[in-house]
Amino acid sequence: MKTSLMTGLCFALSLQAFAQNPDQALARVKYSFVHVKDTTQKNNPYTENMLLVIGKNASVYTSLDRLNRKLVDDGKAKPEPTAPNAPFKPVSFQDYYFFVKENLFFIKEKIYNEYLAEENAPKINWTTTKDTASFSGIACKKATAYFKGRNWIAWYAPELPFQSGPWKLNGLPGLIVEAYDDKQQVQFHFAGMDKVTEANTNSDSFFYEKDIKLPKDAKRTDMKEYNRIKEFSVKDPIGFASAMTGTDRKNIRMGVSMTGIAGPTVTNNPIELPEKK
Rank of each mutant, 00 (worst) to 15 (best):
S4T: 14
E119V: 06
F105Q: 06
T197A: 06
F190Y: 15
A154N: 06
K276F: 14
D236L: 07
D74M: 12
L273W: 09
L52R: 01
T245I: 05
E48P: 11
E159S: 12
S136I: 00
L5A: 11
F135H: 14
K219W: 00
A25K: 09
P79K: 04
V53R: 00
K2I: 15
K76F: 10
T245L: 04
R69C: 08
G246H: 08
Y61T: 04
M50D: 07
T144G: 08
N68A: 08
D248N: 13
T132V: 08
L51Y: 03
L26K: 07
G149I: 04
V196K: 06
I271K: 11
P45V: 01
V177T: 09
E102I: 13
D222A: 09
F99R: 02
L9K: 00
T247E: 05
L5M: 13
S233F: 07
A58I: 01
V234E: 10
P264N: 07
N227V: 11
E114Q: 14
T40C: 06
V256A: 03
R69I: 13
I138F: 12
Q16W: 04
K235I: 02
D73K: 14
F106Y: 15
K148S: 09
M223S: 01
A83G: 00
L71Q: 03
F207A: 00
F162D: 01
A154Y: 03
K89A: 10
A17Y: 05
L67C: 02
N120I: 12
S92K: 03
G55S: 06
R66F: 11
A117I: 07
G137Q: 04
N43E: 12
K195V: 13
V266H: 12
F207M: 08
Q163I: 03
I271N: 02
W167H: 11
P87C: 13
G260H: 01
T197W: 07
G246I: 08
E114T: 15
G137I: 08
D38W: 05
A83K: 15
M6V: 14
S203K: 13
Y97I: 03
E275L: 11
A133M: 06
G165Y: 04
R249Q: 10
K76N: 09
R220K: 15
I252E: 02
P158L: 00
F240Q: 04
Q187P: 10
A199T: 12
R249C: 06
N200M: 11
N120L: 14
I229T: 01
W167V: 03
E48N: 10
K230M: 09
R228V: 01
K37M: 15
K101H: 10
K183S: 09
Q184M: 15
C140V: 03
A143W: 03
Y46D: 08
T7M: 10
E231W: 04
G165L: 05
I111L: 08
D236M: 08
D131V: 02
N57C: 07
S164W: 00
K142D: 10
I54N: 02
N269R: 04
A145F: 02
M50W: 08
K78S: 13
K76Q: 13
E102A: 15
V177H: 09
L9G: 06
A58R: 03
C140F: 07
Y208T: 14
G239H: 05
T39L: 15
T201P: 14
F207Q: 07
F190V: 11
G55D: 01
S32A: 13
V91R: 13
Q163M: 09
G149P: 11
N44I: 11
W155Y: 13
P90N: 09
I54S: 05
I229K: 03
G55N: 01
Y46K: 02
H35P: 02
I252Y: 07
